[in-house]
């Protein structure tokens, strides 16, 4: 009984405060303040749920207007290769393609680096090194994304251009945005994976050492597989973070919905497009305006799908020790 548990844990504190008098009423006495706090906490929880419901409602309502409009054909929406609302072209592929390209690029950077960092921190680093490194890494996650955006545009892009030549690499390109986004989500991957690795019981490692495994073998063949579900969940959360990331791609990836697989060309992601279009003087009744809600809905569905998937993975592949 959860209630019971709460009463017991709060018992000792109660004893301290009321010098044993409370002993008789332990678990019985009504405390109005407690109810007040519970109510307040419930309201806090409810607000976040209501906000989510409200967002889903607005997204759904406005995108329904979009899909119901005679200019929009659902099949063309998913298969069309041009997105130009001003001339009635609503093919979302270029936007989705760019979003996937930047996210992939980000994961290519963040997965190997993040996992290496996680393995190092949990298996190799001394307590002191860990105490220094981990907070520094988490600072990376605290840098405002607009700073990353300008870093991509004014440092990463020139770097790519100096390596590959300015004619190969456009000034706005998905590769530079993706790489910098990888740096942004690196702390997310490493920190969540490290949590998963640290949660693996010590007895497993000791058993591995006992069988004569080296440190590397223990880390890669015992600890990593044991923490796989947590790591997979971390990666999926990181992907959905990358898909939803806005500022970096709005600044550095480009501002035209181009369908291209070349990461050195400019292309516009879903989030980038929403930012750009809602920044102009768009009238409320126009189909352009409704179209950004349809894009928002697609984004929402993608991230929701990824999150559901990550929960499934955690549930299915969870290895229970102890």
């Amino acid at each position: 009984m959860p209630n019971h548990a709460i009463e017991i844990t709060s018992g000792p504190r109660l004893l301290d405060a009321t010098q044993g008098v409370a002993r008789t009423s332990l678990g019985r006495r009504r405390r109005p303040a407690e109810g007040l706090i519970q109510g307040f906490l419930f309201v806090c929880g409810a607000i976040s749920i209501l906000t989510t419901v409200g967002i889903v409602f607005v997204l759904g309502k406005e995108s329904l207007l979009f899909f119901a409009s005679p200019e929009v054909d659902l099949a063309r929406f998913f298969t069309g290769t041009t997105w130009q609302p001003a001339i009635g072209q609503f093919g979302i592929l270029p936007l989705i393609n760019a979003t996937l390209m930047t996210s992939m690029m980000a994961m290519v950077v963040a997965i190997p680096l993040g996992l290496c960092v996680a393995v190092y921190l949990s298996e190799y680093a001394s307590l002191r090194a860990r105490g220094i490194l981990k907070p520094i890494l988490e600072v990376l996650a605290g840098v405002p994304t607009v700073v990353y955006g300008y870093f991509a545009l004014s440092a990463m892009t020139p770097l790519l251009r100096s390596i590959l030549g300015p004619n190969t690499v456009d000034i706005y390109n998905t590769a530079s945005a993706g790489i910098v986004m990888g740096i942004l989500i690196l702390p997310l991957v490493s920190s969540m994976s490290e949590d998963a690795l640290s949660a693996v019981p010590r007895s497993l490692r000791e058993a591995a050492y006992g069988l004569g495994a080296t440190k590397l073998e223990t880390a890669l063949k015992v600890v990593l597989p044991a923490a796989l579900s947590g790591i997979a969940a971390a990666l999926i959360v990181a992907i959905s973070r990358a898909v939803g990331e806005t500022m970096i791609v709005a600044i550095a990836a480009g501002a035209g919905p181009n369908l291209t697989l070349n990461p050195f060309k400019a292309a516009e992601t879903m989030t980038g497009h929403i930012v750009r279009i809602s920044g102009g003087d768009l009238s409320y009744d126009s189909i352009d305006y409704n179209s950004i809600f349809a894009i928002g809905l697609m984004l929402f569905l993608i991230t929701l799908g990824l999150n559901v998937l990550s929960r499934q993975i955690v549930r299915r592949f969870r290895e229970v020790y102890d």
């Binding site: 967002i55 102009g280 928002g296 984004l299």
Partner: peptide, 9 residues
């Protein structure tokens, strides 16, 4: 994500 999508013109 939300503010970007609901931000009015």
């Amino acid at each position: 994500c939300a503010p970007a999508t609901v931000a009015p013109a």
